[in-house]
Design a protein around this nucleic acid. Structure first.
Lengths: 192, 192
DNA sequence: CCCAACATGTAAACGGTTACATGATTAC
DNA sequence: GTAATCATGTAACCGTTTACATGTTGGG
């Protein structure tokens, strides 16, 4: 999803400035699966307005710099829907954590343990955020999105907790002289 | 994770050519969370060899172009471990599908239904791939990685199936005149 | 007193992908 | 015959991030 479509999408929730669009992104569930910085947003908004997909209004503020408030035009709404009807691209998931874990044999067990602990804390936080977002959602579609994240991160958490425990047992086993691999098969088998 | 670290990581499974590194990436579980193209791999390998992190050997082949087989040096292995001990970066997840779903209100229900169906098919395929990768894994760390994907995608699948059904009911309800939101709350509550 | 939030914008740098160039072999 | 696999490499291009430039207000 390119910056343009993201901006159009965020503006369906009402008119906003570039700054506010960034905030909606960061504070909403959509920000979990998309991300753009000011350096990309501002030029995109300018072009979108030039193309007639957005209306721009200058709002002078005293004691603060002027605001440029953008709103979807009919043409913009049509362009957004058109974009949403196009075939969706593939997910793009980059996880340094999982990459490092895939090479865990090379690392001291304490490092792996810490990595998992940090990850658990991070996922827990993410889930807390998502719960708040879920409550604050104003549309079914937004609730669907938050629910998605909650479901996925819930499973992640369960997996991590199980394997953290397994790692602990292994370390204990090593001290006791019982050598076992520190990570073992997925519980419940492979099929679901 | 930059190309260099990825190449070093892939070479811990044994010496390989640039072409083979790409294959390991695509066919292994690590490819699910990292991705690089030839255009990035080849220059990276050249530089890595220049820096003494890899040894390069030219293997002439008859009936085929020459191979450049790279292998980790001691220095390279040390550099990799050093990189793995550094603080891991954040996940970066981009999902056009979830973005579109977050704006599902704007779309015809049939479109949403199809999107979910396609997604289910895609996740099912991904899971089949991961099951094979799990079976073929040679280390506990690799099994951990595959198991991770299986757990997460399993939850995703369950969520999608539930919500697909709900959407169906909603459509049926609409035909019968009973108006309900097409997506509803996450079953089992929000906490876990 | 300094930092965070508010507010917009530009330019350089970066990391990467895509396309191109080349060419033989094998399997359908 | 034609597509896929094997095999390496370069250059142009692309979207984004980072840093910079500028300035006010309010809270700790």
């Amino acid at each position: 999803m390119d910056v343009r479509t993201i901006c159009l999408g965020l503006l369906t929730y009402g008119e906003a400035t570039g700054y506010e669009i960034k905030k909606r992104l960061e504070e909403g569930a959509i920000g979990q699966v998309t991300g753009v910085s000011f350096g990309a947003i501002y030029p995109a908004l300018t072009r979108l307005a030039e193309d007639g997909l957005l209306s721009a209004r200058d709002e002078p503020q005293d004691k603060r710099p002027d605001k440029k408030v953008y709103a979807l035009t009919e043409k913009g709404r049509a362009a957004l829907i058109e974009a949403l009807l196009e075939p969706v691209g593939e997910d793009r998931f980059r996880s340094p954590f999982i990459f490092v874990m895939s090479l865990a044999d090379l690392l001291p067990p304490e490092r792996v343990q810490r990595l998992i602990d940090q990850r658990i804390a991070w996922v827990e936080e993410k889930r807390r955020d998502l719960e708040i977002m879920f409550e604050e959602s104003t549309s079914e579609a937004q609730r669907f999105t938050c629910g998605y994240g909650l479901a996925v991160h819930g499973a992640e958490l369960a997996y991590l907790r199980t394997h953290r425990r397994r790692l602990e047992e292994c370390l204990a086993g090593e001290r006791a002289g019982t050598r076992t691999g520190f990570v073992s098969a997925v519980e419940g088998g492979l099929s679901s």
